[in-house]
Amino acid sequence: MTEIKLSSLTKRYKDITAVDSLSLEIEKGELFGLLGVNGAGKTTTIKMLSTLTAPTSGDAEIAGFSILGDKQKIRERIAISPQETAVAENLTARENLKMMAGIYGMDKDAAEKKIVELRDALSLGKVMDKRLKKLSGGYKRRVSIAMALINSPSVLFLDEPTLGLDVIARAELWEAIKAIKGELTIILTTHYLEEAQEMCDRLAVMKDGKLITVGTADEIMKEADVDDFEAAFVKLVKEGRS
């Protein structure tokens, strides 16, 4: 069942085309990876899908609702964990989660139950009552993802979730993402190709705002005619095939 449908989605900033007529479909429950070098248009795509910025032309539907006309309905169903850690640094992890629960209009009991669930799923037990500014980057990122999951969204956008984290924190965060995989549709952008290959059900490669290819890691390697996913990515991006 299609959860997200992009139809010629385009974003132009003056004379720069950040996203150029992007069309693709993402299935419900899929973990979908958006790959590309810097400036490929991944973050702009996520910003348009999460209603943060309006497309110049084209449209996208999430759960049947258009990003052009049904923003409020989409906002009730999606969540985003932006590239930078989007948390209230002066509040504790628990207070951050309570704030998000309140913003989504959850009642107290439902919020408490969900907070306990997320605390356990993302291993936040030790840090629940600590202010975010005192936590490591890895913990902040996990709290950021927990905040995104508080309203049980049907679609979660993770923009570079492991950016700037050390190896251990990155591995732990991927474990956390694995734990929620399948429960909702996840669209993530990352530069870590090995992890994307291992984690994602399907991947799309973008270059200069255009979609170069989309498919499973195996399909992409086959298309590039190489045995290594990183080599396939480099080859496709350099050739700029579409």
Binding site: S50, T51, R75, E76, I80, P82, E84, A86, I103, Y104
Partner: peptide, 13 residues
């Protein structure tokens, strides 16, 4: 200036 507001702008607020 923070990405917290970016997150909040995707909520029903």
């Amino acid at each position: 200036g923070s990405s917290l507001l970016q997150r909040l702008l995707t909520t029903p607020l």
